[in-house]
Structure formats: structure tokens, C-alpha cells
Design a protein around this nucleic acid. Structure first.
Length: 381
RNA sequence: GGAGAGUUGGCUGAGCGGUCAAAAGCAGCAGACUGUAAAUCUGCCGGGCCACGCCCUACGAAGGUUCGAAUCCUCCACUCUCCA
């Protein structure tokens, strides 16, 4: 069988890497941000609208890869149906790459309705209470049957605040699950392992060595963005990233803010995903080149300027802040559409800028310029 | 003309002698959101202040009963329903 993905680094800037990942559904320029489409949908956008995100009018727009979620799709519409309908790509008319989360995050986020055992995790459906089981074997099976380009090993994402001993125990199980996940992989999906270890540097080191020694197609840092303080997340990232294999993509799961992305790339991360641009968009919190805009704020009621003067997404090209505020305040669906288009575009544009700056060895300058603009507070100027 | 019901903070609407500056919802103002149980959640929401407590003005208007009234009585104004 041909390699499931090919990863190549074309340039570096310090620890930062500029590269690309070739998949069966197109090539991904890295470092990359992957919008989250949990239920085979980037919330509030049609697949066509998603492809219109991003600012470069001449270039192919839209993300080159998105996420979906094993647990959520397993419940609805169910993997049998997805398989019967030709997989997630065909299902949502998406011809670019898809990475699926294994359900490991739901071990954390749905902790109140699940039971973890060595064999796997028993979930009670958050929809109807019915029992569902995910293990390394069943998770990988589902991900493969969905036809994703990149599957994730099934891991246990531990909560923040557990003791060293508890995190260690969890991590060791995640390591066993990692080997079981790889053993279960039989299809064409690439498979990434996930490093755990909480906020403990010694555990992160052990986990990076263990996961890095397994024949995965890429390695992820999991277990962050679970409520820990920012500096803890950065420390985990900075301790772990350098220990990961240099010839595989490195994926920081669930991160993050624009600043986090800059820090992550600087630490040598190649892939990110986060619900922040999409969720915040629906909640009226918009990222701009000049800082955050809470579009519901009264001061935008008569503001006829574009949301972000430096953005050329559909939203910023066509409507005013005043209109966006009106749509948001009145609960119009279009508010979420416009807001999501912008936030996703902003993230894609940010990553494009980051990639260019790594290629030209100017990431630090790019970062400084970006942050000085964002903190200057000129959104309302 | 007759009988009855009602008038509460921007709106709807609880309260029916003290624990009421007055429930709840909405609207409004602000904040949060990091591998999505999120178009969600949280806080504020009469005014003032040397502000975790105090003062002022408040439940249609005016009088009254009472130690104490949004709550009881009198009268006035207005609104609504039904019967002629």
C-alpha cells in the first residue's frame, strides 16, 4: 500500500517549520489551522461557504483540512449510514482532507456520562442516554469506515488538576491504547498518536518518547486546553514539541487563540485545531487584525466601517459593523454565518502569514507586528 | 345606565400587612468561550454615595388606618370585560 500521507519540511525558522502534507484529498500547507466540523459540518456554514473562507481572491480559498468527531458522528448519523453513503467526504461534499478526533476528548468533556476501563470507554449518549462503547479498536474502525484521511489514536484526555500519580496511570493506559490503535488500523487512513502526561514535564517526556517510538504517521500533543492556565499549556508545548520526531507532522490538539498559534509554530508545531473561531463567532466574539470585537457592544450600533479593515473576506468586503451588530442582536441566522466566515477567514489568513514568515525566516518579526497591532486597541479608532 | 375586573420598575407579569428596591421572563449593558452536550454560559440591570453597607425616590393620584402598607379603608383619575 502506498504511504497514507507524505510529510515534507521545506523551510525552518528556529524551531518553526514550513512544510506540506500530501493526502489522498489534496496537499496541506503547514503550519495549518484545521477548523472544527464536529458533526461533518463547520457550524453555521455550508460546505460551499466554508470554501469561500480566506482572503486571497485569486487563490483557492477555504481550509485544506477540517476536523470531525468520531463520538458525535457515531451517534448521528451512525457509522453504518456514513459508510453506506460513501464516507464523510462524499456525505458533506467535501473533497479536501479530513482529520477525525477519536472520541478521546469526549472522555474528558463528557466525563459525567462515561465510564473508563482498560478495555475502553462506556458512554451514555448525551442525546438519548443509550449506551455506546468506544475502544481503540472500535474508534479506529469507525474512523476508517468514515474514510478520513487522518485518524487519531483513541486516548484518555485527563482533566486538569489530577495528581501526578493519576495522570501517570492515565498516560500509561493511553500508551497501551496507542499500540492497540495502531494494531487496529488496517485501512487507508493515516494514524496519529497522542502524547499525554498532563502538566508534568517528566510524564510529557516519557510520553513523547513512547508515542514517538511507535510507527505513527504523525504525533499529537493532547491533554491541553482543558482548563489549565496559559503558562502551563505553553510549558507543556515547549517541553514536548522538541522531543517529537522531526520527520512527522506535529499536531497540538485543541489550540488555540491567535497568539497560541504563533507560539505553537515557534515551538515547532505543524497542525492546530480549535473551536474558538467558530464558537466565538456564533457568540459574537470576532477576531480582527486590530484586536477582539464583541459585535454586540453598543458602540458598533452606528459603525459603518467593515469589521476588519485589513480583511478581505466576504463579511468584511460586503457588510458593516452596524449591520453585523443588528443581525446579532436580533438573532438572525445570517449573523452566525457572517461571523463564522470572518473568524475562519481570519484564522486561515493568519496561518498563511505565519507560513510566509517561516519561509522567509521572519516569524519573530511577524509575531511582534501582529501582537503590537492587536494590543494597540485601535479597533474603535 | 347596570355588574364586575384592573392600574407594579423600559415591556410582559408575580406579590395581597413586616423577611420588598419588589419574583420570573423579555429587552438593555457588559464579560467569558481553546481535540464543540454551546446560536451557549455568567454578571449587572430605580438613583446616589467615603459602596460587601448606608441614604433618597418608588408599586396610577390624594388622603387615611397601623409601630409598619405595593398589600387594608376612602375618594379621584384612567383601562378592560359582560349586561342593557
Amino acid at each position: 500500500m502506498a504511504k497514507r500521507i507524505e510529510f515534507q519540511v521545506s523551510a525552518t525558522d528556529g524551531s518553526a517549520r514550513r512544510g506540506e502534507i500530501v493526502t489522498r484529498h489534496g496537499t496541506i500547507q503547514t503550519p495549518v489551522f484545521m477548523p472544527v466540523g464536529t458533526l461533518a459540518s463547520v457550524k453555521s456554514l455550508t460546505t460551499e461557504q466554508l470554501k469561500q473562507c480566506g482572503a486571497a481572491p485569486e487563490a483557492p480559498n477555504g481550509p485544506e483540512i477540517i476536523l470531525n468527531n468520531t463520538y458525535h458522528l457515531m451517534l448521528r448519523p451512525g457509522v453504518d449510514l456514513l459508510e453506506q453513503l460513501g464516507g464523510v467526504h462524499r456525505f458533506m461534499n467535501w473533497d479536501r482532507a479530513v482529520l477525525s478526533d477519536s472520541g478521546g476528548f469526549q472522555v474528558f468533556s463528557l466525563s459525567s456520562i462515561r465510564k473508563v476501563r482498560e478495555e475502553g470507554v462506556e458512554f451514555r449518549s448525551h442525546i438519548d442516554g443509550s449506551a455506546h462503547f468506544l475502544s481503540p479498536e472500535t474508534s479506529i474502525d469507525i474512523q476508517q469506515r468514515m474514510g478520513v484521511d487522518i485518524a487519531m489514536a483513541f486516548d484518555e484526555c485527563p482533566a486538569y488538576g489530577l495528581s501526578h500519580a493519576e495522570v501517570e496511570k492515565s498516560m500509561e493506559m493511553t500508551h497501551r491504547w496507542a499500540r492497540r490503535s495502531l494494531a487496529a488500523r488496517t485501512g487507508e487512513s493515516a494514524l496519529f498518536g497522542i502524547v499525554q502526561g498532563g502538566i508534568h514535564p517528566d510524564l510529557r517526556k516519557r510520553s513523547a518518547e513512547e508515542i514517538g517510538s511507535i510507527d505513527f504517521d504523525g504525533v499529537a500533543i493532547g491533554g491541553v486546553s482543558v482548563g489549565e492556565p496559559k503558562h502551563e499549556m505553553l510549558e507543556v508545548m515547549n517541553v514536548t514539541a522538541p522531543l517529537l520526531p522531526a520527520d512527522k507532522p506535529r499536531y497540538l490538539m485543541g489550540v488555540g487563540t491567535p497568539e497560541d498559534l504563533l507560539d505553537g509554530v515557534a515551538a515547532g508545531i505543524d497542525m492546530f485545531d480549535c473551536v474558538m473561531p467558530t464558537r466565538n463567532a456564533r457568540n459574537g466574539s470576532l477576531f480582527t487584525s486590530l484586536g477582539k470585537v464583541a459585535i454586540k457592544n453598543a458602540r458598533y450600533a452606528t459603525d459603518q466601517r467593515p469589521l476588519d479593515p485589513n480583511c478581505s473576506c466576504v463579511t468584511c468586503r460586503t457588510v458593516s459593523r452596524a449591520y453585523l451588530r443588528h443581525l446579532f442582536m436580533t438573532g438572525e441566522i445570517a449573523a452566525m454565518v457572517y461571523n463564522t466566515i470572518h473568524n475562519v477567514s481570519f484564522y486561515l489568513d493568519l496561518m498563511r502569514g505565519i507560513r510566509q514568515s517561516v519561509a522567509s525566516k521572519s516569524l519573530q518579526a511577524f509575531r511582534d507586528a501582529f501582537l503590537s497591532r492587536v494590543v494597540s486597541g485601535e479597533v474603535d479608532a
